[in-house]
Amino acid sequence: MSAPLLVAEGLFKRYGSIAACRDISFELDEGEALAIVGESGSGKTTLLHLLGGLLAPDSGAVFYRGRDGASRNLFEMSEAERRALMRADWGFVHQDAARGLRMNVSAGGNIGERLMALGDRHYGRIRGAASQWLERVEIPLARLDDSPQTYSGGMRQRLQIARNLVTAPRLVFMDEPTGGLDVSVQARLLDLIRGLIAEMGLAVVLVTHDLGVARLLSNRILVMKQGEVVESGLTDRVLDDPQAPYTQLLVSSVLAA
């Protein structure tokens, strides 16, 4: 078994007197999908931002094993290294697609940007890659030159996914990827995400308040409450045989349609 891809060690993050994250530690392997669930205020989004290097912790570390095999602490890297990592190795899918896209640039330009950032200088090739990805996320090719202003919410989200995956990242962070979308749109999007994770062998850290989404997309789960991990383990086990009182409460509170 190879070394873990991402290791969080003793992460602490405080906002004034509120501890958003308290002593969080876990490991993530290549190709593993981890869901972080909890209610509002649980600290799950803060944790996601810490893991993604978007926020610095008050103490603790996040180690990432690069393509060269060496593990480095995210917060001891230079900003240049961190940004390069985010461009080449990582993806970040925001809940609000507009945050993760350039709304005044065409879909093709959005998808091609990472390729251009990594030095690709052939228009035809960039456009070809963008076209392929547009089809892969099931957006009609005719929309390649349209700006995402003209896209629906579900299409924007799929475009955001394509933009992130075009460089075949090893690790993708997702923040409520289907939040705010119509239910009918969610189902198809979830299947797309699930398929891509399996095909590309992506490691995923997914924050969601929706236990159904967690069950569908992840194999492991962390349940957070007020900044702490109250339970963790195999997703179906934690959801079907919850041990911690809070997890039992969460699971029993979900309404069935």
Binding site: G233, L234, D236, R237, D240, D241, Q243
Partner: peptide, 9 residues
């Protein structure tokens, strides 16, 4: 069955 499959602890 569920314990064997790992679904129950």
């Amino acid at each position: 069955l569920k314990i064997v499959f790992g679904n129950y602890r």
